[in-house]
Design a protein around this nucleic acid. Sequence first.
DNA 1: CTTGATTTAGTACGATCGTACAAATATATA
DNA 2: TATATATTTGTACGATCGTACTAAATCAAG
Lengths: 199, 199
Amino acid sequence: MKVAIETIAAVGYSQASVGQISKRAGISKGVFTYHFASKDELMDQIVREVYEAGFRFMQQKVEGQTTPVGMLTAYIESNLAFIKEHRDYIVALAEIVTNARTPEGKLRFAGQADDTILEPLIEIFKWGEETGEFRTFTERAARVTASAIRSAIDSVATKLVAQPDLDIPGFSEELVSLFLTAVCKPKASTAATREKGEG
Amino acid sequence: MKVAIETIAAVGYSQASVGQISKRAGISKGVFTYHFASKDELMDQIVREVYEAGFRFMQQKVEGQTTPVGMLTAYIESNLAFIKEHRDYIVALAEIVTNARTPEGKLRFAGQADDTILEPLIEIFKWGEETGEFRTFTERAARVTASAIRSAIDSVATKLVAQPDLDIPGFSEELVSLFLTAVCKPKASTAATREKGEG
DNA sequence: CTTGATTTAGTACGATCGTACAAATATATA
DNA sequence: TATATATTTGTACGATCGTACTAAATCAAG
């Protein structure tokens, strides 16, 4: 699985054949067939593992937060930190999700890419509304804002392919600043109320 | 080319073989070979044509603007309007750009996906700084903000695949509001100074 | 050392890919 | 009509894909 992830990240989904993966792993194709019922099964396992690992990592960082601002910040920062530390895994995940298809031509992981992923962010917005730290959101505004945040984060995975030396912490810092400006009430300098772990 | 675009949008890049495209077009594979030197040539032409068409459409809408706020609004709205009216073209473009690879496994259109595309947005930010409508940007902040805007726009193409009934005008409206809030000076209600074409 | 199960290597199969090409047909020009 | 060009068809080729399968190698236990 590790070699498969590296291979997909390096040459893309379509070029990552069972033969290629096996060759890079130093095994024969027969070994692959023995341990995985099919290529799709391998992809399923990779997607599940990477996704769950990311979810656990973020949950750990986000759960401890006591303010909406802190939680939104932790959400963005922990997500990008995970991407930074698991570059190949994220690139491979993106490759698989956007390319793996059913025999009929439909995306195999399209269902999981729907708006369910936006819910945690929307919850944070609602919390921020209640505490008064954030401005008010219509249902649609919350959804689009959450979508924009996720798009910005996900774009890093794509950027990393062509731009391996991308300054992720810097990007992260700016993204947090940008979206806090967008969701916070314009009263005081709310962005400075949270201690920043720069040391 | 039209059928090729529809085919790619429908079944994805990898499933859009020369045979499939030809069959859908009601011609033989030989006709394809006669008119295109290779499959890659077809992809090149599609990418160039769609990209240039979008660029012309947006340029037309953006150039007439006389304020930074108006221009940023026109940028987002015209881009999403183009996506809305050329759904298949955009989906196909995204498929090709993210999938077409060289024999060595590198993305064939990776070079064009670099940060050059951010420049027009960065120029708008600079203009807004000068007029005082926008807050000030560090070089990095401008780049990340531009990147976030582009990611949000580009995500619509991906969303359209799984969600064909997406409310693009509504999404557009919210995106404009979101990013104007993020880049404008928090003084007055700047978002209302521009007449909105809702009639 | 023997035996049985587990794991691996190597190969073969059918399918599909992009491309090449000879033959057939359509079109335009004189 | 005769001729040259443009276009189309249908088929074939080599390559590669995912998978199936047999034989060999390795390992665990008696």
